[in-house]
Amino acid sequence: MSRYDLKPKAHSGAIAVVVGWDRPLQTYFAQVFTPTQGEPDQGEATTWLGTEPGELPTPEAAIAVVVRYAEIPATLASDLEADMRATMGVEDGTHQAEAKRGLFDSFH
């Protein structure tokens, strides 16, 4: 799995923005955290996509989720693509395969 913490844009309402690649789910993911009364500094993930197998199939799909909230580095799409390619051929371990069967009734 990879994870990139992006710089939130001023006045976007976000306090943290994250994108990355999740090899077990074979999807990119995107998260936007906004402040809450209970946790004004850490916030809550008010946007979180990429929790289902294959939900965000490309780096561009993940970036599109967060582009209004964060500054996007010029190399982010290629970095995410490289992260995915680096995990090609890696198989799930016993516990990952078992968890997928329980959650998704499959071996995605």
Rank of each mutant, 00 (worst) to 15 (best):
G13D: 09
E44L: 15
V19R: 03
V67T: 13
D41S: 13
K9D: 03
Q96E: 14
E52V: 10
S78G: 03
G20Y: 03
E91F: 09
D41V: 12
G38I: 01
R101F: 07
P8F: 02
P35E: 01
A10Y: 02
V65D: 00
E39A: 15
S106L: 09
E55K: 10
P59H: 01
V67A: 14
V19E: 01
Q26M: 12
K7E: 14
Y4W: 13
P73Y: 00
G54S: 07
D41L: 09
A77Q: 08
P57G: 05
E98P: 07
L6S: 02
L76S: 09
A16P: 00
H11Y: 04
S78Q: 13
E81C: 09
E91I: 01
W48Q: 14
A62K: 00
P40H: 05
V67R: 08
E81V: 13
L25G: 02
T47W: 01
A61M: 05
E98L: 14
A74L: 11
P40F: 00
T47R: 06
R23W: 10
L25T: 00
I15R: 05
G54F: 04
K7W: 05
Q42F: 13
G38P: 08
L56Q: 04
E98A: 12
T87S: 11
P24R: 04
T75C: 08
W21N: 11
W21Y: 15
V66F: 04
Q96L: 15
A77W: 03
G43M: 08
Y28H: 12
G54R: 12
R101P: 03
K100F: 05
E91L: 13
I15S: 03
F29T: 09
Q31S: 11
S2F: 03
K7L: 15
T27C: 06
E71T: 12
Q31W: 07
Q96S: 13
G20N: 05
A70T: 01
E98R: 07
A62S: 10
V19C: 04
K7I: 15
F107W: 10
G20D: 06
F107H: 15
T46A: 11
G13I: 14
D105G: 11
Y4H: 14
I15Q: 04
L56V: 02
D22Q: 09
A30H: 02
S12Q: 11
A14I: 08
G43H: 07
M88H: 15
V67P: 04
V17E: 01
D79C: 14
G89E: 07
V32W: 00
R3L: 15
F104K: 15
D105W: 00
A97E: 10
P8D: 00
Q26I: 08
G93V: 06
G89N: 07
H95P: 05
T87P: 06
D79P: 07
A77N: 05
V17M: 09
V90S: 03
Y69W: 15
D5M: 13
R68K: 13
A14D: 02
D92T: 03
I63R: 02
S12C: 11
T36V: 11
E39M: 14
P40R: 09
I72C: 06
G38S: 11
E71S: 12
V90K: 01
R68H: 10
A82G: 12
P59V: 04
A10W: 00
S106N: 13
V32P: 05
P40C: 07
W21H: 09
